[in-house]
Measured scan of single mutants.
Amino acid sequence: KMTIRVKGKELARRIAKEMKDRNLKVEIHEHGDEVILEIE
């Protein structure tokens, strides 16, 4: 399990899509400006 902190929703969406393309499970937690992606 891996956690990534990202500034900006646009970048977070791009990373999430990339991870889904690799068949990984992604959970997205938004905290205002910061987005936390949990990847399994």
Rank of each mutant, 00 (worst) to 15 (best):
I15W: 04
K17G: 05
K20S: 12
V35D: 02
V6A: 02
D21I: 08
I39G: 00
E40D: 11
K17Q: 13
M2K: 08
E38R: 10
G32Y: 06
M2L: 13
K7N: 09
E27N: 12
V26Y: 05
R13T: 11
R22Y: 05
L11G: 02
R5D: 02
E30S: 07
D33L: 06
V26A: 02
V26G: 02
K20L: 14
K25R: 12
G32Q: 06
E30K: 05
V26L: 04
N23A: 06
L37R: 01
M19N: 02
N23S: 06
I39Y: 05
M19H: 03
E34S: 09
I36R: 04
R22D: 02
K20Y: 09
E34C: 14
I15S: 01
N23W: 06
L37E: 00
M19T: 01
V35M: 11
K20A: 12
E40N: 10
R13Y: 15
G8Q: 07
V26S: 01
K9E: 07
K7R: 13
H31V: 13
A12V: 03
I36L: 08
L37H: 00
K20M: 15
I36G: 00
R13Q: 14
N23D: 08
G32L: 07
A12M: 02
A16R: 03
E40R: 11
L11K: 07
R22N: 07
K7T: 10
E27P: 01
E40F: 15
R14P: 01
R5Y: 08
G8K: 06
G8E: 07
M19E: 00
I39D: 00
M19V: 03
I15K: 02
I36T: 08
R14V: 09
E27R: 11
E10A: 10
D21R: 14
R14N: 05
G8M: 05
V6T: 03
H29Q: 08
D33P: 04
E34P: 02
R14Y: 05
E18K: 12
I4Q: 02
L24K: 04
H31I: 14
K7H: 13
R14H: 09
L37M: 05
E30N: 06
K25A: 07
A12N: 00
R13F: 14
T3G: 02
K7L: 12
E34M: 14
I36K: 03
I4V: 06
D21A: 13
H31S: 11
A16Y: 12
R5C: 14
I4G: 01
G32V: 05
R14T: 06
I36H: 05
E38G: 03
V26R: 00
K9L: 15
R14W: 09
G32C: 13
K20C: 14
V26C: 02
E30T: 09
L37A: 00
E30V: 12
I36P: 01
G8P: 07
G8V: 06
E18R: 13
A12G: 09
H31T: 10
T3D: 02
K17E: 11
K9S: 08
I39K: 00
G32D: 10
R14K: 12
E40Q: 13
R22F: 06
V35H: 05
E34K: 04
I15Q: 00
K1C: 12
D21P: 02
E10F: 05
I28P: 01
V6Y: 03
D21E: 13
K1A: 08
I36A: 02
K1I: 11
I28N: 01
I39E: 01
R22S: 05
K17Y: 04
R13K: 13
V6H: 02
R14C: 15
L11S: 04
E40T: 15
T3Y: 15
E18A: 15
G32I: 04
V6E: 01
E40Y: 15
N23H: 11
E38Y: 15
R14S: 06
K20V: 10
M2E: 04
E30R: 06
I39F: 08
H31Y: 14
V26P: 00
L11M: 07
D33H: 07
N23M: 07
E34A: 06
D21K: 14
E30Y: 15
L11A: 09
G8Y: 10
L24E: 02
I39R: 00
K20E: 12
D33T: 06
D33Q: 06
E18W: 15
L11W: 04
I15N: 01
H31G: 05
M19P: 00
V35N: 03
K20H: 09
E40I: 13
R13D: 13
V6F: 06
K9P: 07
R5T: 10
I39V: 11
K7I: 11
V6L: 08
R13I: 14
E27G: 05
V26N: 00
T3R: 09
E38P: 00
K9V: 13
L24I: 12
E40W: 15
H31L: 14
L24R: 04
H31E: 14
H29G: 03
R13H: 14
G8R: 06
M19L: 14
E40V: 12
G32S: 04
G8F: 08
E38D: 06
L37T: 00
E38V: 15
K7W: 11
H31Q: 12
E40L: 12
A16C: 12
D33R: 04
M2Y: 13
I28Q: 04
M2P: 02
E34W: 15
A16T: 04
M2R: 12
K9Q: 10
T3K: 08
N23G: 15
L24P: 00
T3W: 14
I15T: 02
V35Q: 04
K7S: 09
I4H: 02
G8L: 09
L11Y: 07
E10W: 10
E10G: 06
H29F: 14
E10H: 08
L37V: 06
D21Y: 07
L11E: 11
M2G: 04
A16H: 04
K17P: 00
E27S: 13
I36C: 05
A12F: 02
L24F: 15
V6P: 00
H31P: 02
E34R: 05
L24T: 03
E40H: 12
K20P: 00
E27H: 13
L24H: 06
I15A: 01
M2Q: 10
L37D: 01
T3H: 07
K25F: 07
I4S: 00
V6N: 02
E27F: 13
L24S: 02
K7V: 10
I28E: 03
I28G: 02
E10M: 06
L37Q: 01
A12H: 01
K17D: 08
E18H: 13
M19K: 02
N23R: 08
R22I: 05
G32H: 05
E18M: 14
M19W: 08
E27M: 14
H29N: 04
L24N: 03
E34T: 12
D21V: 06
D33G: 08
K20T: 14
K9F: 09
E10L: 08
D33N: 08
M2H: 11
D33W: 07
I28T: 04
M19S: 01
K17A: 12
E34I: 14
I15P: 01
D33F: 05
V6M: 06
K25D: 04
E34F: 15
D33C: 10
E18G: 08
K7A: 07
H29C: 11
E27K: 13
A16M: 11
E18I: 15
E34H: 13
V6S: 01
I39L: 04
K17V: 05
A16L: 12
V26W: 02
R5A: 05
L11I: 10
E10Y: 08
E10S: 07
K9G: 06
K9N: 07
R5S: 07
I15R: 02
E27C: 15
I15Y: 03
D33E: 11
M2V: 14
H29Y: 14
I39H: 01
E27V: 15
R13C: 14
E10N: 07
A12D: 00
I39P: 01
I4P: 00
G8I: 07
E27L: 13
R22V: 03
K7F: 12
R22A: 08
K1L: 07
I36Y: 11
L24Y: 14
I4R: 01
K17N: 09
K7C: 09
K1F: 09
G32N: 08
H29V: 11
I15E: 00
M2S: 06
V35G: 02
L24G: 02
G32M: 05
E38W: 12
E18F: 15
H31D: 14
K25L: 09
A16G: 03
K25Y: 09
K25V: 09
E10K: 09
R13M: 15
D21M: 12
E18Y: 15
A16D: 01
T3L: 11
V35C: 07
